[in-house]
Amino acid sequence: MRKLNTLPAVVIVTVAVLAVAAGGVLAAQRSPRSEGGSAAAPLAPPATTPLASPANVSTSAPPALPNGKITLKLSKLGKGRPPQVPYLVGREVRGGAGDPVKIPGAEPIHYVARMGNSVLAVLGTNKGADLLRLDPTGESRRTPDVSSLAVTADATSAAYAAPRIAETGEDLGGGTVYAEQADGTVQKVAVGGFGVEVIAYRSGTVYFRSAKIQTGKAWELYSWTPGNPTAALVKTVPSPTALSSDATIAASLDVAADTSSCSAVVEVATGKKLWRTCENGLEGFTPDGRTVIGGPTYGDGYGAAATSALDARTGKLLYEWNGLAFLQTAAEDDQHLLIRADDGEGTKGAIIRCDVTTGRCELATPLALTQVSIGQ
């Protein structure tokens, strides 16, 4: 899931993965190797056959670091393979299935994704944001007021939400949720509430949230099957922040305050709370649903001070990475997180890859001043 305006208690990642989808910002013992400079293990292949490693990536598995906090320095990280999901460098979308595609114009690019052979981009406007679809034929289409975006796991469909926005940028309440196929078929449903935001598109169902009142801190989760005239309220998940890839568990904002919050992982079918934390905000899952992406419970300023990986079944902290300004976190696969980070405004940044099983991190893009971001 990707959304333009983040929540005070949650530091993004759309992460709908969107996330997302997954996917994000969710300490015990300090690592004896605080820099984590060795390359992470190669990405796990979809089958059991070994995945060939590029010449510039170490093929030797580094020793696992003990669970706990790891302080990173970008200048100390080794070079790894490029991201295996779509990502943005400057105005060019790279990675994923398809050739590099340049986003035209000069409008700020908030999020990008690939859907079939097309590229989707959420672009900033004076009013808020629009969704741009670019096709290989050169044709393009804009949908106004879109501020959140999620694609299916196979990248054949996308869901996005367009809240009703005044010319001043004020949320007027209500809006439209769309489901689009790669062939151009678009279905939509009118919805109510404030801050309408798509969280995930899972197994033919679009999940989105909205608040009953404009200044509310509680959100309700809804599910919508494209083609149906209405959406259904999911009563078991209050204030959702993320949904697993199989839609069986969700991250929920349990208690919210002005300066801190607590979160929980709950079963979608029953509402049963599996565990609760007041030390991490939860906003994404790895594709296998075994790891939750997290970070500080309150996000303000330029970037988050840390990003974390927690066991989705127990809430146990696996690793927390700190020492940088963490701007975006998303799952690359079951074992790896991609993190956009730098040392502060105006400094060189990169997308880095961190292994949730060893804690090791590496550069997935070169360290540079060029804008980079993680797509879907």
Rank of each mutant, 00 (worst) to 15 (best):
W275R: 11
K212F: 12
T14H: 10
G349P: 02
L131F: 10
R91A: 11
K217E: 14
S147H: 15
A52S: 14
P366S: 14
K272H: 05
T125K: 10
R94E: 00
R142I: 05
A150C: 06
V189P: 00
A41Q: 14
I165L: 03
V265L: 08
S223E: 14
S244M: 06
V112H: 01
Y111Q: 04
D99I: 12
R202I: 12
R202F: 09
G174S: 13
S157W: 10
L367D: 00
L88Y: 05
K348Y: 11
R81Q: 08
T248P: 06
G173S: 08
G124E: 03
G124P: 03
R209P: 09
W321P: 01
V191D: 01
V119G: 00
R141D: 07
E170M: 13
P144S: 14
P54M: 01
A155T: 04
E267P: 02
I352Q: 04
G349D: 02
A211V: 08
Y302Q: 13
Y222R: 05
P54C: 07
S53Y: 13
L337N: 02
D311F: 03
A257M: 07
S252P: 07
P32D: 06
R276S: 15
Y298N: 04
P45M: 08
G299M: 06
L337R: 05
R94I: 00
G289Y: 03
D333E: 00
G216W: 07
S245K: 01
T248S: 09
V151N: 01
P42R: 02
T49F: 08
G195D: 03
I165P: 03
P100T: 11
L77V: 01
A309C: 05
D300Q: 11
V85Y: 05
T156E: 09
A264H: 09
I70A: 07
V177M: 00
G346M: 01
T297H: 00
A22Q: 15
G192D: 12
P108H: 14
L317P: 00
P226E: 01
A309V: 04
S157R: 12
K127C: 09
W219V: 04
A158G: 05
A179M: 12
N228A: 10
V196N: 00
K235W: 11
V191G: 00
A158D: 03
A155G: 02
Y319G: 04
G24A: 14
E180Y: 11
G303Y: 02
